[in-house]
Amino acid sequence: MSIPADLKYTSDHEWIRLDGDVATVGITAFAADALGDVVYVDLPQAGSAIASGDPCGEVESTKSVSDLYAPVTGEVAEVNAEVVDDPSLVNAEPFARGWLFRVKVEGDLGELLDADAYAAVVESA
């Protein structure tokens, strides 16, 4: 199971790529595989404020639905329209074209996991 070393992670199986003060957020390959074929993503509105740890959307497969949690605090800068149109990108390319939204981070990043720490989370799942 792929866990890119250059990303940060949460224990809710989301990944974060930081470019300056903008965080790109997605769900991990492990999460996408556990959900099965993703058929719908419900994402926060661009411009809305989200707070680290709060539910901010959903990822849904035929079999189940999983909440998205804001991994950081800030303002939603952009939503991936391509993944809204074609949610199967979450399964096909979870760390690339399957990204979900971007956040302009306010304040501290908070506690995020590095790849090794996230691999340990997956191991124990």
Binding site: G36, D37, V39, S61, N91
Partner: peptide, 11 residues
């Protein structure tokens, strides 16, 4: 078996 690959493809 829950699925082999894609459950949508199986459906």
């Amino acid at each position: 078996p829950l699925r082999y690959g894609s459950e949508l493809a199986e459906h």
